[in-house]
């Protein structure tokens, strides 16, 4: 066995496995279209749902405080989505050189980590204010309203603590892996310069 024989077998294996596993170009194009269509449907549904909720609030005879509180909640959520999109970056980097792609991924993960680390400023604080406003506005309501509000707040806090912890752990693992990949690629260059 020698290197060239292995390489030739390797090249031949690609031809065979491509025939077995590659989808036809029509299937592939439709798969990409379906992915895009799915993303558009989800985004449209989210927009419709938020618009519908705002309409309900507006037409439901709510008090000014409640309208303000719900507007604050919706605005906070929209701002959060905007910040995540901004930190993540819309531009694809897959077509860049491998080292550039890994470094772009590292920068993106660091930005997202910072964003999650500062979540209390632009998410917790406005949400807390909104819930306090809701509690104030529901002064003359039935006790079930308070129970519902307390349960919602509890679930939200639990979700945020657990979810944030989970996302941060993943982000940290991602950052470490990306840093290692980037440093291994850079190391090849550094070794060459040193030698």
């Amino acid at each position: 066995m020698n290197i060239e024989a292995n390489r030739q077998a390797w090249i031949a294996s690609g031809e065979k496995s491509a025939q077995r596993t590659a989808p036809s170009s029509t299937q592939l194009i439709w798969r990409v279209r379906l992915r895009i269509a799915f993303a558009i449907i989800i985004a449209s549904l989210a927009l419709l749902a938020s618009g519908f909720c705002l309409l309900l609030i507006g037409s439901g005879g709510f008090e000014v405080f409640e309208i303000l509180a719900w507007s604050l909640i919706v605005a906070t959520l929209v701002a959060l989505i905007g910040l995540v999109i901004r930190a993540h970056g819309i531009r694809q980097t897959r077509h860049l050189r491998v080292l550039d792609h890994v470094e772009a991924g590292l920068a993106r993960t660091t930005r997202l980590e910072t964003l999650i680390g500062n979540l209390h400023w632009f998410f917790w604080a406005p949400m807390l204010i909104a819930f306090l406003m809701l509690a104030y506005a529901s002064e003359y309501r039935h006790w079930t309203d308070y129970t519902f509000a307390a349960t919602s707040i509890g679930v939200l806090i639990w979700g945020l603590i657990y979810g944030r912890d989970y996302v941060q752990t993943r982000m940290q693992a991602d950052r470490e892996a990306l840093r290692e990949q980037a440093s291994r690629l850079r190391q090849i260059d550094i070794e060459e310069n040193a030698s």
Partner: peptide, 24 residues
């Protein structure tokens, strides 16, 4: 290397110098 790319192209794909590719 298995794909039979020359050093210049490997360097272009990975973003590291072709000399470094050759040595490694």
């Amino acid at each position: 290397y298995l794909e039979a790319l020359d050093y210049a192209r490997i360097s272009d794909v990975l973003g590291i110098s072709s000399g470094a590719c050759r040595t490694r």
